[in-house]
């Protein structure tokens, strides 16, 4: 009986978590369009999320592209079709890898930070303080983060793709001595605008997902420093899983 009770409790907690996250998301989204508009908060978050994640995203992107070029060149060489290395790398990056990997990197860097920040403010009652000053804490803390992630993620994804293709070019053309003209032509001819757009749209949704999951984890943190730590872990784990789940559903919807 105890076991079944536990399963029930766990399930209820998850459902409750989903519900609170949804409510928070709704609250946060609606608050964006209500005065007062605190532009500086938005800008600040955009700097933290976008500019701050630039280096890690570019590093990841570059090496991902390079590794993919090496591996796909190996595979295509079996069929004497090395000309398709660029196509493969470009399609994989723009449609799938760039948004997902950017989402995971941003989750690790930004999601954890959001959960910690909001969680600490919660356990030290700063959120209550905001409320007592007649400041809507969701509007003050959550809305700017959702907006910043939704805007920054596509930008980071686009840069990830570009730097990844650049890395692939370095490996394929300079390293493996493949035909540069074919490499370029096959990318330009095969990759369509929709391939790129789909990646960017995915990235925007990932950004919103990460923001909501992380803010919710922080918002619901309780029990002092330990609670904050757990909230941070929860934020990263849930947001990562959420990115992959959302990716699957968006992919089958879009293609």
């Amino acid at each position: 009986m105890k076991g079944i009770e536990r399963i029930g409790q766990w399930t209820l907690a998850r459902i409750e978590g989903t519900g609170s996250a949804t409510l928070l998301a709704w609250d946060g989204l609606v608050s964006m369009f209500r005065p007062p508009f605190r532009w500086r908060l938005y800008l600040q978050q955009l700097e933290f999320v976008g500019v701050g994640s630039l280096v890690i995203v570019l590093l990841t992107g570059g090496f991902t592209g390079m590794v993919m070029a090496v591996q796909s060149a190996y595979a295509f060489r079996l069929f004497n079709a090395e000309g398709y290395v660029g196509t493969t790398v470009a399609l994989a990056l723009t449609r799938e890898l760039a948004p997902v990997l950017t989402g995971l990197m941003v989750t690790g860097r930004v999601g954890s930070s959001i959960a910690t920040e909001i969680g600490t403010m919660g356990v030290t009652e700063q959120i209550e303080a905001l409320r007592s000053m007649a400041v809507n804490p969701v509007q003050y803390l959550v809305s700017p983060r959702i907006a910043a992630l939704a805007l920054a993620m596509p930008v980071l994804t686009l840069l990830f793709s570009l730097i990844g293709i650049g890395g692939a070019w370095v490996v394929a053309v300079l390293g493996l001595n493949l035909d540069e003209g074919v490499f370029h032509a096959r990318i330009v001819n095969v990759v369509t605008a929709w391939d790129v757009w789909s990646g960017l749209i995915k990235a925007a949704f990932f950004g919103v997902t990460i923001a909501i999951v992380s803010c919710n984890a922080g918002y619901t943190a309780s029990g002092g420093a330990r609670g904050v730590g757990l909230a941070t872990t929860r934020a990263v784990v849930y947001a990562s899983v959420a990115v992959l789940v959302v990716d699957y559903f968006m992919t089958i919807m879009m293609f």
């Binding site: 800008l43 955009l46 700097e47 976008g50 500019v51 630039l54 920054a152 930008v155």
Partner: peptide, 9 residues
């Protein structure tokens, strides 16, 4: 420097 960095982004 926030506006500058965001502008650059």
């Amino acid at each position: 420097k926030t506006p500058l960095l965001v502008g650059l982004l």
